[in-house]
Amino acid sequence: MTAETNMKLIDVIDLEKSFDGKNVLDGISVAINQGDIVVVIGPSGSGKSTFLRCLNCMEDPTGGKIMFDGVNIADMSVNIDVHRRHMGMVFQHFNLFQNKTVLQNIMLAPVHVQLQDLKRNQRKNAWNGLCNLFRSKEKQVAMVPITKTKASINQEARETALKLLERIGLADKADVYPSTLSGGQKQRVAIVRSLAMNPQVILFDEPTSALDPEMVGEVLELMKQVAKEGMTMVVVTHEMGFAREIANKVLFIDGGKILEAGTPEEIFEHPKNARLKEFLSKVLA
């Protein structure tokens, strides 16, 4: 499946994380390619959520490297906000902004970062324009082309957001506050909220664990759709069925280490590691 797009998107090298001297992640190395659907499984307390949260530095790694777009984002001197724009994240408890309507939840980040860029470019142009007055003709610095205005950014983000809401069938909920939505609706809004940023990868931190059983299906369905569109995804989950059907790579983590990695078939049908066999016998029973 990934033969034609075998490009490393995230390269995790010897990732370590310790809380107060206790090692939670103990040297994890894995490469995530463009278009990969990586599912991370493991018993609770194994460090799988910590691993996921380290990928976009929600937890700062204490050792190792995370190469994303050729930059080591584990380095504390890197402006992490710039890279997080390209890494969506979906949380177990949805974390929709409580003080914003559904539409505002989706529009907020795209509008904000675009306005930030717009202002930066305008500043840059003003400065260069001033400097150009004192430069000879050959040395003139070109202006950054500005095609968008504040209104057009807003308008565009609004249209994208409405389209996304339409897609998940919640267009009529655009102007309500998240507290009135059901868990499944909240999580679907959270997923399209990260889609609105056009990320290169989306990280899912147990997206269905806080849902009522009857709502798990609708969220998994949306995730499958997103996966089929070619989005790179890293998913921490207990939904083994989802892992089997959608993943092209499964990681089994326990004790802060990857004990086994492979295709779903290798992991679920022919497990080699004893700890994995024990784990599967419990969860698949």
Partner: peptide, 9 residues
């Protein structure tokens, strides 16, 4: 966390 994950400062 949600705000930071979206790339807001």
């Amino acid at each position: 966390e949600a705000g930071r994950a979206l790339g807001l400062s």
